[in-house]
Design a protein around this nucleic acid. Sequence first.
DNA 1: ACCTTTCGAGATAACGTTATCCCATCATGG
DNA 2: CCATGATGGGATAACGTTATCTCGAAAGGT
Lengths: 325, 325
Amino acid sequence: MVDVAREAGVALRTVSRVVNQDSTVGPELVQRVRAAIADLGYRPDERARHLRLGVTGTLGAAVRQLSHVNPVLRAVERAARAADLMVLAASTEDDENLERHVVESMCRRRFDGIVLEPIGDDHGYLVPELAAGLSLVAVDRPVLGLDVDCVLSDNRSGIEKAYRHLVRHGHDRIAYIGDDERIYTARERAMAFRGCVAAHGGPLDTMLHTGQVESGRIREAVRAALSGAAPATAIVTGNAQLSVEVLRHLGADAVDVALIGFDDSELATLLRPDLTVVAQDTDAIGSTAIDMLRARIADPATEVRTVTVPVELITRGSGEIPPAT
Amino acid sequence: MVDVAREAGVALRTVSRVVNQDSTVGPELVQRVRAAIADLGYRPDERARHLRLGVTGTLGAAVRQLSHVNPVLRAVERAARAADLMVLAASTEDDENLERHVVESMCRRRFDGIVLEPIGDDHGYLVPELAAGLSLVAVDRPVLGLDVDCVLSDNRSGIEKAYRHLVRHGHDRIAYIGDDERIYTARERAMAFRGCVAAHGGPLDTMLHTGQVESGRIREAVRAALSGAAPATAIVTGNAQLSVEVLRHLGADAVDVALIGFDDSELATLLRPDLTVVAQDTDAIGSTAIDMLRARIADPATEVRTVTVPVELITRGSGEIPPAT
DNA sequence: ACCTTTCGAGATAACGTTATCCCATCATGG
DNA sequence: CCATGATGGGATAACGTTATCTCGAAAGGT
């Protein structure tokens, strides 16, 4: 920058003014400075700029897997771009230690705010960061034990919609195959399912299967649900990956067993019958997250909120299969 | 930091030494400084650190869509983590202007290097950055007109493998349905297909269909390929998304028409018959990209290279369907 | 007892920006 | 013709780090 100033025969401050489009610089000086910048290949250094300014105009997104389908992240990027903020994202790989590493890195880099898909139950490392003024919003899952802004889907209502839909289509014995209940969303959905069964009066033991998403376990769960004296005539799955696994193991039975999946996905309309799903409003989740984050950045004293976004049942065929007689 | 020094009763430099685990500080001073850091909630500022150090220990990844399946990005993150580098990623949304914006932002932030999935044909904006010492590696597609490190899949060989495989299974009339040839990979694959047809001696007009991935166009292409006096008995698709679309429109015909898709995907083993694919070695692409980037960062004078990574034909059933008689 | 070595720690100067303050220069009004 | 703004531009001090240089003190050898 000092070289540019010398080359253009102006003061340092003037170069800064030209770079920042300050209107108080005469046109011919602007020209001279521009020329010098091009000549010398000067490229401004945001590190220094941000250091001086205090803010970085950057949001961090710490998500489970960058390389997976994540419509919420897409909505986050869109909304941030609309607010002239840059989003830089990194994967936490469902690893608590990696989450901590990623988030702390973002804090040390003084990102203006962080969108986090939290993992696990212990987020104690966040306490000093929050005390020091970190703006953070959790999406998809809450940060347990900490008073933090949060955007969640209405998991309970989603399961209830699916259950009621199947009951309405004549099903009586409905199974649920879900993810590991150590995961918040899996826990919420399984609890909601238990509530449905309790309200409806059926047995639970052969109808609820949760645990790691592992092909062998899913096969076993599908087998257990569909066998015995009173086999299930319908299945609800706990997430998109589980829908795929369950379909894989249903095989030819897929035309006889009703199925409703949690989460919409592109293959929902590829299969026969098309997949009925509980779809999350990912656009609303993402843009709400950015709204809340921006509000907190603007005023750190903003009251902490948890927003629950409604889900929608999309009927496509698989959920409308009648019970086998 | 100066507050910490005052609180601990030491000099600024000593605090820095403690933070950076310098061994030349006495144990009791380390304790005092640690206590002061915790007391005052001091959090180091990487912006200043990076400014002073010159390097940021950060790589940027500018990819088409963060929220899409992208096994290469996963491999990039893994390999970078192994090298103790942080990867921060952003989407370019297949938009040339957005790509430029993202890459220039990363440059101004002085990322140590950038992994780029280039879009379009004009990357002139990179020239001054490269001249100023930007380390960059392109993946999946080359940066046309610029001498830049590059990791590509062997698209030509992939198409040839698929074509030969189908010929070996008795097919004579093989159709190709591909993406818009303005996209480099689509162009390469279509060209390779033309070469195959030329070598094999068949007609081309009803067998080659490229253009935007749009449901109506794909339906029309499938119809055109399978109708007429000499209908195709086998189809090769140009990418994973096209495989899905083609399958959608094949419907019940999927058991009669041989199909080989470019790119592996999780739904390849979900369908009946399972999908035979040309699989890219995404792990190799990602780790090679990081290797090349690190080499260039370490020595900017390193010779520019283009690495072509082999592809593999994975037979699963759909590609082994014999021609209808 | 004195000199040398080693080790720990402090003062100071960068890194590349921007903001504050201040001073020219010029046109305008009394 | 001089005072008064207004306007454009320059010197200087931060922002929060780390590296260099220097110095003091303690330990060990002759």
